[in-house]
């Protein structure tokens, strides 16, 4: 069937174009400007002269460490909470309260998480400005996204699967762990990956919990100080005198590339699994 549109409908489609244009133009513009500054050295070398020459390896590795630390915390807790909400939570006021808490946590601005992380992890628990403090803060920030993704993915599994497995004599936990959870796997992974892409780009949290301005060494443990891509972009853009513009654009380009790769692979994975699923 060929679609045909009336004039006012064209106007609606025009609005859609207007909505898509700025972000797509932004991405394209950044990649074009970044091209001049990207080289193997830029990605794989240590920074020198406060970042004006050399590469941004510590910032890239720092961000990977952050993602790793965030995953270690958020995956078990987030998936666990999602499983609980979808499969075991009784329908009562307490569960309702829990759902409300989840919605509210998702709406908290990242700077408030940063404030909490600073006061609690950095100062009160004495973790200092470290990968640990920043990872834990980012894990809390991404938690509601992972919980919601898990719950939605489990809700997407037909109830008959669960019932069939229970009818075969499985316990509720067995039904969840061997049937519904594996079926919901792709949805959970997609959601987690999207949540992590948020963590990769977040600046406010790590700005407060303490990314380093300049540290030409790679982190060695979770207690290490670290550089991170988004914070490096922030200081390159606003604080470093004599920073060549193409290097700032290149940093923006690398950060954007990392985030988009995570987003695109999450989306592609979901679409693939969607096509494979027979229900």
């Amino acid at each position: 069937m060929r679609q045909s549109y009336t004039l006012p409908e064209m106007f609606l489609l025009g609005a859609l174009g207007l909505a898509l244009l700025p972000p797509l133009a932004a991405v394209l513009y950044i990649f074009v400007r970044a091209a001049a500054g990207i080289s193997l050295e830029f990605i794989f070398a240590m920074p020198a002269q406060r970042g004006i020459t050399g590469g941004i390896l510590p910032a890239i590795v720092g961000t990977l460490w952050l993602l790793f630390g965030t995953t270690l915390v958020v995956l078990p807790v987030g998936v666990g909470a999602g499983v609980y909400l979808a499969e075991f939570a009784p329908r009562n006021r307490f569960t309702h309260l829990l759902e409300m808490a989840l919605i509210n946590l998702a709406g908290v601005p990242s700077v408030v998480f940063g404030l909490f992380g600073y006061a609690f992890f950095v100062l009160t628990l004495g973790f200092g400005s470290s990968l640990l403090s920043a990872s834990l803060t980012l894990a809390i920030m991404t938690l509601p996204l992972v919980v919601t993704a898990t719950r939605e993915a489990l809700h997407g599994v037909p109830g008959s699967f669960r019932e069939a497995s229970l009818a075969l004599g499985a316990t509720r936990w067995q039904a969840v762990s061997t049937v519904t959870l594996p079926c919901a796997r792709s949805g959970i992974l997609t959601g987690t990956l999207l949540a992590l892409s948020r963590a990769a780009g977040d600046t406010a949290c790590i700005l407060i919990t303490g990314a380093a301005f300049f540290l030409p060494r790679l982190p060695t443990s979770f207690m290490s100080r670290f550089m991170a891509l988004p914070y490096h972009l922030y200081i390159s853009a606003t604080q470093l005198p004599g920073m060549p513009p193409e290097r700032i654009w290149a940093t923006a380009g690398v950060l954007l590339f990392l985030v988009l790769v995570m987003q695109v692979s999450a989306t592609l994975w979901r679409e693939r699994e969607r096509r494979l699923k027979k229900w």
Partner: peptide
């Protein structure tokens, strides 16, 4: 001073490889 601190740290670490000087602003 953050740039000065970073430049001093960078030069210092070239000769003192077992000491890590972290600079933030």
């Amino acid at each position: 001073m953050v740039n000065m601190g970073a430049a001093l740290a960078e030069e210092f670490m070239k000769t003192n490889r077992n000491i890590e000087v972290v600079v933030s602003g």
